[in-house]
Design a protein around this nucleic acid. Structure first.
Lengths: 194, 194
DNA sequence: AGGATAATGTTTACATTGTCAACATTCAGC
DNA sequence: GCTGAATGTTGACAATGTAAACATTATCCT
């Protein structure tokens, strides 16, 4: 019945967990070493047993956020069978994630030396690319076009989310109709005028 | 010949100037009050005579960066006469700015409560929108399409620049050919299959 | 079981940063 | 030239990241 554990059990996991909570609530504002340590009721220095420095902790949280995005995309894709619809679902999920979880989304793309997604976890990019290869196999696009198609789709979706989620007065509106429209136009840019 | 001026002359301008230099060199990393004050050989507190706090200073630098982007776009547009080419030039200039000046570009879009572009300075968004309205007048698109066309073009270009300029392993390549391709596909998404 | 050793936390200490308050100097206009 | 407004300075304080030294617990080897 020792309540005072001293040892925490799994501090690393706990830090990442509370980090994600903070990220969800307020983006990258409260992801400092001291702040997160306090949340877990641990001295700041304990953090350094699990991360070489604060940047690294933030970076790991960023990675988790990216994985969360990947998971959402995967779920969305799983609901569709048609190749084209699967492809579009990835984009829609990406945008919806960005708008529903602005904190996580912004943390996912802060440029702290981004640790790559761990191999065994769903990568947004991986899912995305798979659906593009499917488009290729289904004859929508040529193999030689894969790279440039990916660039357009990825860019449009990422850019839209950034801009729509920001606070610029010039940001595009993010109504369902506007999103549909973006996706439809992007599709035009992909399959062209054939 | 008093070398010890004590008063600086125009500290605000000096801070913004050196801030831009730092931004160009290393993004948002060295835009703190103390650091910039040191660069101008002034005590940190002097900064507060010109900006209410550090965020505000950073935000003003961000604004300057956005204005610089606007200037580049304007220069690019001025070289073209054809409506379509003018429109595409804005996008190309945007991307090139982002790739040639990654520091400035990232600072331009940090989410410090973005001060809107000062009215009398070239706004990237303003230039962009003007060329879209020209597209409209020239009959390329319908008036009802302006918003969604703007959303696609702006998103694609912004997203591409963010991604290509980042360090993700999944970033698109940014060769001239790849950029041309993006712009061409985006154009397809705009004028569609007519 | 018991003791060496690795893992994991804590306290102290210090440099850096943003910012407040109080004080000093210069400028501008009467 | 004096007075008040602008503009800078110094000193103090709280918060942060992190190094060093120390303490506690877990693990593993005989």
């Amino acid at each position: 019945m020792k309540k005072n554990t001293y040892h925490h059990g799994d501090l690393e996991e706990a830090l990442l967990k509370v980090g994600m909570k903070e990220a969800r609530a307020s983006g990258a504002r409260n992801l400092g070493v001291t702040y997160l340590a306090k949340k877990v009721h641990v001295s700041p220095m304990a953090v350094y047993r699990h991360f070489p420095n604060g940047e690294s902790l933030k970076s790991s949280i960023s990675q988790r956020a990216r994985e969360e995005l990947g998971r959402r995309m995967q779920e969305a894709v799983a609901k569709e069978t048609d190749v084209k619809r699967r492809f579009q679902a990835t984009g829609r999920a990406y945008i919806q994630f960005g708008l529903q979880e602005p904190g996580l989304f912004s943390v996912a793309f802060i440029d702290c030396d981004a640790a790559p997604t761990r191999e065994d976890n769903p990568s947004a990019w991986g899912i995305f690319q798979d659906t593009i290869l499917d488009l290729c196999n289904a004859g929508y696009i040529k193999a030689s076009e894969v790279k440039s198609v990916a660039a357009l789709a990825w860019s449009a979706v990422h850019g839209f989310t950034m801009l729509a989620g920001g606070q610029d007065p010039m940001r595009p509106t993010a109504s369902p109709k506007a999103i549909d429209d973006l996706i439809e136009r992007t599709w035009q840019g992909i399959v062209g005028n054939k």
